[in-house]
């Protein structure tokens, strides 16, 4: 457990998170490995159902039955330098770490705040849970956080209830709450997916600025590769609960070694590229087929049925995650040729 490099804040190692029911085992996360360096942002990308949220919930210890961590390690270094294995942490350990050391922003801004308490109360509660502060001080800190996330007229919004706010405002409140105790790790699970595009880029800007200001590391989960380029240093691409490609952002955007990543990038709308000079629209690419159900994965490569480079071997031999360049990993039999 002590073999965690000093500059690494989070190390997920061969994590397996399964949902077991009487008849089937859904391997939502099946052998995921990645490291996140202090002060950096790691993006986890993949289509719906690839296991991104389950990965983040596993890290936070927020899985509920029948879901559970089957095996693997989730090493986390707190701000005092103590390393915890979150895959085995006790409820008491989690109580101290959640909110204070690791905070999370959820995918659903509309429903993630409690409708019965004001946003000021909910941010204040986070502060009161972890800091020795009077009620008035906690309230002042909550107000300061609302200003940090650029909520206009913050002093008057403090006593608003969530239903009085728009989705974008609620997500800002979630961010304010997550950052209220200055956590060293922020897990942002598709923080902008439910919001419209202009709000999306505002929130991304905001996260970047807050990261500079507070110096936290971010695990950024998204299904949009376009967003990744703006915020992350490293990228993990997931498919059917497994990592299929893992690389720093620049090499990845220059050369994708896995056909799935190529397909994802081709699907990413890009107004400038898609609209040619003559004003004609090019057809938007989409990966043929759909994600196989995780309870019925093909024996070989999970992506093979949808892959245009697939050869016979792909449907029988499960590919391994292998180095294909400097810090560049890919899980494909034909990586070398691509």
């Amino acid at each position: 457990m002590s073999d965690l490099a000093p500059d690494t804040i989070l190390s997920v190692r061969d994590l397996r998170t399964w949902f077991k029911s009487r008849r089937v085992i859904a391997k939502a996360v099946d052998g995921v490995t990645f490291d996140l360096k202090r002060g950096q942002t790691l993006a986890v990308v993949g289509e719906s159902g690839s296991g991104k949220s389950v990965t983040s919930l596993s890290i936070m210890g927020l899985l509920s039955p029948p879901g559970g961590i089957e095996s693997g390690e989730v090493l986390f270094r707190d701000s005092k330098g103590v390393v915890h294995d979150l895959a085995r942490a006790s409820a008491r350990e989690f109580r101290r770490l959640r909110g204070k050391e690791i905070a999370m922003i959820f995918q659903e801004p509309m429903t993630s705040l409690n409708p019965l308490y004001t946003v000021g109360d909910q941010i204040g509660e986070m502060i009161a849970l972890h800091e020795r502060m009077s009620h008035a001080e906690a309230r002042r800190r909550a107000l300061e956080m609302l200003r940090h996330v650029e909520i206009p007229d913050a002093a008057n919004r403090l006593d608003d209830y969530p239903h009085q706010m728009s989705g974008g405002m609620r997500q800002r409140v979630m961010i304010a709450m997550a950052l209220a105790c200055n956590p060293s790790l922020l897990i942002a699970d598709e923080p902008t997916t439910a919001l419209d595009v202009t709000i999306q880029s505002q929130i991304l800007d905001l996260l970047r600025r807050l990261q500079d200001q507070f110096g936290m590391s971010i695990l950024f989960i998204t299904h949009n590769l376009g967003v990744v380029a703006e915020i992350a240093q490293d990228v993990v691409v997931m498919y059917s609960g497994r990592v299929v490609e893992h690389a720093p952002v620049v090499p990845l955007f220059r050369k994708q070694k896995h056909p799935y990543t190529q397909g994802l990038l081709a699907c990413t709308p890009n107004a400038a590229r898609d609209l040619s000079a003559s004003g004609e629209r090019k057809a938007l690419y989409s990966i043929p087929g759909s994600v196989p159900p995780i309870t019925a994965l093909p024996p070989g490569c999970a992506f093979a049925p949808r892959c245009r480079y697939a050869i016979d071997a792909c449907s029988s031999i499960p590919p391994q995650l292998e180095a294909v360049g400097d810090h560049h990993l890919s899980r494909c039999l034909r990586s070398a040729e691509l």
């Binding site: 927020l62 770490l97 959640r98 429903t111 993630s112 705040l113 509660e125 849970l129 972890h130």
Partner: peptide
């Protein structure tokens, strides 16, 4: 099963507090 109950847990409070203050009131 509501999302805000999960949010409450993610803040690092006791299960007692999650259940009484956040779930029961709703």
């Amino acid at each position: 099963n509501d999302d805000y109950v999960r949010t409450a847990r993610s803040k690092g409070m006791s299960e007692w507090r999650v259940v009484i203050r956040h779930a029961l009131k709703n």
